[in-house]
Amino acid sequence: AVSDRLIGRKGVVMEAISPQNSGLVKVDGETWRATSGTVLDVGEEVSVKAIEGVKLVVEKLE
């Protein structure tokens, strides 16, 4: 699937994400809805860990 190529890629949070609410991330110039187990603020760099349906699962870049 086209989304599989995104796993491991870096992105930037465009709309804040929390465990309760999905947000938006931009990866390779495309905007995706994303979820995370932690709070991520706009502008934070993330990496794509998995894909669930049409949402990316991301975590903060260390």
Rank of each mutant, 00 (worst) to 15 (best):
G53D: 14
G53F: 04
D41A: 12
D4Q: 06
S36L: 01
D41Q: 15
V25Q: 01
T31A: 09
A50I: 03
E52Y: 08
T35Q: 11
V54A: 14
L61V: 13
S36I: 01
M14Q: 15
G53Q: 04
R9E: 07
K60R: 13
A50L: 05
V54F: 09
D41W: 08
L56T: 02
E30T: 04
V2P: 15
S18R: 13
D41L: 14
A50P: 01
V54N: 11
D4A: 06
V48N: 00
I51T: 07
G37V: 13
S18K: 09
R9M: 15
T31Y: 15
S47E: 12
Q20S: 13
V39S: 12
D28G: 06
L40Q: 06
S18F: 11
T31P: 06
V27F: 03
P19T: 05
L56I: 10
D28N: 09
P19G: 06
V42Y: 07
V58D: 01
I51S: 04
L6T: 03
S3R: 05
L24Y: 11
G43E: 08
L24I: 14
L40C: 05
D4E: 12
K26D: 09
S3L: 08
L40A: 04
E15F: 06
G53R: 03
V2F: 03
L6S: 03
E45M: 13
V27Y: 02
T38P: 02
L40V: 09
R33G: 13
V48W: 00
E44Y: 08
A16Q: 14
G37F: 15
V2E: 15
D28F: 06
V12K: 07
K10G: 09
V39A: 11
D28P: 01
L56N: 00
N21T: 14
N21I: 13
K55Y: 15
W32E: 02
E62T: 14
E52D: 15
D41E: 13
M14H: 07
E15P: 00
V54G: 13
V48H: 00
R33F: 15
V13W: 01
E52R: 05
M14E: 09
V25H: 00
V2R: 04
V39H: 15
P19N: 07
A16I: 11
I7R: 04
E52P: 02
K60C: 04
E30H: 06
P19I: 09
G23F: 03
A34P: 01
G8S: 04
A50C: 06
K49H: 10
I17V: 09
G8T: 03
E30V: 04
V42F: 07
A1L: 12
G43S: 07
V58C: 05
N21D: 08
G29I: 07
V25L: 02
E59N: 07
W32D: 02
A34I: 01
L24G: 05
V54L: 15
G8K: 04
R33E: 15
G53M: 04
D28K: 04
E44R: 06
K55D: 15
E59M: 10
K10M: 12
E30L: 06
P19K: 07
S18A: 11
I51A: 05
M14Y: 08
L40G: 01
V46P: 01
V42G: 04
E44L: 12
K26E: 13
V57G: 02
I17D: 01
D41C: 07
G43W: 09
W32K: 04
D41I: 10
R33T: 15
S22H: 11
L6Q: 03
W32R: 05
K60W: 04
V58Q: 00
A1R: 03
A16F: 09
D4K: 05
E15K: 05
V12Y: 09
S18W: 10
W32H: 12
G11H: 00
S3I: 11
G43R: 08
I7P: 03
N21F: 12
